[in-house]
Structure formats: C-alpha cells, structure tokens
Design a protein around this nucleic acid. Structure first.
Length: 155
DNA sequence: GCCAACGTTGGC
DNA sequence: GCCAACGTTGGC
C-alpha cells in the first residue's frame, strides 16, 4: 500500500466530479511527464490512495481523496490526432503514456496550499519542495496520517 | 499575465 | 554527452 498526491485542474476534473459519481472510474489522462508516468505505470497498485489536489485555480490545495482502481493501460488520448494530448511519436504497439483509473474515496475540509505550507510537520513534503512541478508525487505514511487528520477523515 | 523552475529536444 | 533554446507547469 502506497500513498500519492495527484494534481488536477478543477476546471477539467474536480473532486466534485468524482463525488457526484462515486462508483465511476475516472481515467487519469494527460500525464506527459516520464517520472509521473512511471509512478502510474509501474509503482502504483490497485487500492493505493491519493490526495486529490486542485491546481491552477484561485486557491490550490488538497480537495479530497481518491483510490487507484485499475491496473495501468495506455492513455487513449495519445492516439487521437485532434486531442490536445496527442503524441505523434507514440504508437499503439509501443505506447509512451500510461494511466490508471481513480474513483472517489472521500473528502473533508479543504486544505489550501498555504495551510499545508504552514505545517512544520510537512516541511519535507515533495509537493512543497521548491520548484516542484510534478503532477504525481509519492506521499509518506507520516504525511498521509497527518494530512488525513487535518481533513478530519478516517482512512 | 508574469515569471521561476524544470523537462525535453536537437544540433554539434 | 553537452548545452542552448524552447515549451510547460503552476503559484501568484
């Protein structure tokens, strides 16, 4: 069991979208970074939990929790010529980009980036590291427990 | 919209 | 394998 943090732009997919259809598996499309891809393709396991982070919005922060609910498979958007995530160098025989499905797993208080930065317990969190842009990052068990308490969730 | 930081590309 | 140029991320 491992823990993760996954960034999404809420204008694209938000925690509200997941919560509205809690049984639905949402494919995590659009990751075009090799490190993040490797986390999804190789490191994640079905049943892992992730903080669902809202990025690129007025108040970025942790909005809830989702569960990894599929094995990895090729991101279909890489093959679609009109898709913004189209990758002409990828082929169906040898896909570059892999993803997993996630589904809603809970939510609590909204924890803004500022609130997270204010916690000395999270000083070493990957999300908060200077210059971090990675859209998927591992979360330590200590960080997970601390933050879920802040969310006022049991998980 | 700005810009710092980072990742990728491609010439050499 | 180096590195300059370029593109992207994402907070502000």
């Amino acid at each position: 069991m491992q823990y993760w943090l996954m960034k999404s732009e809420p204008d694209d997919v938000s925690i509200d979208d997941l919560a509205a259809e809690p049984q639905r598996a949402f494919p995590w499309t659009g990751v075009r970074n090799y490190q993040a891809r490797n986390f999804m393709r190789d490191a994640m396991q079905v049943g892992d939990l992730a903080f669902f982070y809202h990025a690129g919005c007025a108040e970025p922060g942790i909005a809830g929790i989702c569960e990894i609910c599929s094995e990895s498979y090729p991101d279909p958007t890489q093959f679609v010529a009109v898709d913004p995530y189209f990758d002409p160098k990828s082929t169906r025989e040898n896909p570059r980009w892999w993803l997993r499905d996630v589904r809603f797993a809970g939510r609590g208080r909204y924890l803004s980036l500022g609130a997270l930065r204010a916690c000395p317990e999270l000083a070493n969190m990957r999300l908060l590291a200077r210059g971090n842009r990675l859209s998927i990052t591992p979360v330590t068990i200590g960080e997970w427990v601390f933050i879920t308490r802040l969310l006022a969730l049991n998980s």
